[in-house]
Design a protein around this nucleic acid. Structure first.
Lengths: 236, 236
DNA sequence: TAGTGGTCTAGACCACCAT
DNA sequence: TGGTGGTCTAGACCACTAC
């Protein structure tokens, strides 16, 4: 059994202690937290690093660490549709449109790093939030890595299925976001007027060896969906 | 003068050494890099952390650290329009549409955390890439923090001007991305047909104390612009 | 000038991977 | 099993902030 890391435990404790504090309230100094919780200062810094990355605190050298003001957006993380919807307080659901094995084709092959005539499993689903359409999702996976997938239960989380049934863990993803005009079929499925805008997210999911496992194109209704995130200046 | 940190120096050296290597080539072990460069292993890990975040290497516990395969997207960082275009090998330019002092109004006031009747400087610019329109940019700044801004030279980088002239450093930003239908005026300025889609990015720039400094809405041509980034699974 | 976060060291043990 | 990255310790000095 993998034990919880100390800095992770500390992170959660600090988050709980901060819960009632006003923005810009100073946290105890790193040395104080270190002494009070009986851990080294490096461990405290690991916990604070995580809290800073997630946008919960900010640090000013020479001054201290402070509770960050509430933000609209936390930093972007890789989430499944279900997780994404639950974070927005919406109830996720799914309607399977197609599940079949086909040849990859040039574009999918390039994204997955396989041969164009290799077989891929294509799973097409209409995803719902609070009972009404939110997006169209089209997933492609190399067929040899997911034998029998098309016959599995595809109503729930695909990521969970990949992990439990096939031992495939998606650890990161490359995404390309673009605005597009929806065509007639897409508009009809999403329940919006013809010709309005949609948000298209193309994703390539990678395993821990940075090898492509999944290529997904998702088409969101522009009137119900946006992407929120925090960015930081990297190197000055 | 601020000296360069050792881990930053090491990061650049490792990046240079990796330049010719094939994807998945193992790097030396952390202990080896440590010995060879005469730094502690923690410092090596700081350098590797940065390289992992930027998508240059990936690490597998128990196995090693490896050169990451080339990716379409690096992790998202806060960049100015000029920096963004240069990364895409395009030449940035600018046409000033308006620079004036106005009342904030409800929406801008909320984003900047100021009173609705407070004064803000509004700078509206058409931004060009390789000579043709790329986006419409509308920046709002609290007037009391940038006195005289409307009379400055606004043809170049606004971020540089804010830093040099007013000592304002934008360290992070919250962004909201959405697909929208362009109206007649917007289409005309961007040089696209009426009714096509645009990508709208709303940004609130924050200083090192997480205080809002700038609220910007940028409208990109969907046919010329997309957003690319890498996301990682956060906590399992 | 005192105190803060930022960087760095030289150890140590653990969890995990390949063999 | 031996070697890897992941975590952790107990120090130290530096750069910067606030007073």
């Amino acid at each position: 059994m993998a034990r919880q890391a100390k800095y992770e435990e500390l992170r959660q404790e600090l988050l709980a202690e901060m819960a009632g504090s006003a923005p810009h309230t100073p946290l105890p100094t790193e040395r104080e937290i270190s002494a009070r919780h009986g851990v080294s200062r490096n461990t405290v810094r690991q916990a604070l690093d995580a809290l800073e990355t997630s946008g919960s605190v900010y640090r000013v050298q020479g001054a201290g660490t402070f509770v960050a003001p509430p933000v609209v957006s936390k930093s972007l993380a890789l989430t499944s549709f279900s997780e994404d919807m639950r974070e927005r307080d919406l109830v996720p659901a799914s309607r399977l449109l197609a599940a079949e094995t086909v040849r990859a084709g040039r574009q999918i092959a390039e994204r997955l790093g396989i041969a164009p005539d290799a077989e891929v499993v294509r799973v097409s689903r209409l995803r719902l939030a609070d009972g009404s359409p939110m997006c169209l999702e089209n997933v492609h996976l190399p067929a040899d890595r997911v034998p029998g997938l098309a016959r599995e239960d595809l109503s729930g989380s695909l990521y969970a299925l990949l992990t439990e049934r096939y031992g495939l863990q998606i650890r990161s993803a490359e995404q390309v976001v673009r605005a597009v005009d929806l065509d007639e079929t897409e508009s009809a499925l999403l329940g919006v007027p013809v010709g309005v805008s949609g948000l298209r997210v193309q994703r390539v999911g990678l395993d821990r060896r940075d090898t492509p496992v999944e290529a997904t194109t998702t088409l969101y209704r522009a009137d119900r969906y946006d992407i929120r995130f925090t960015v930081r200046r990297s190197r000055p």
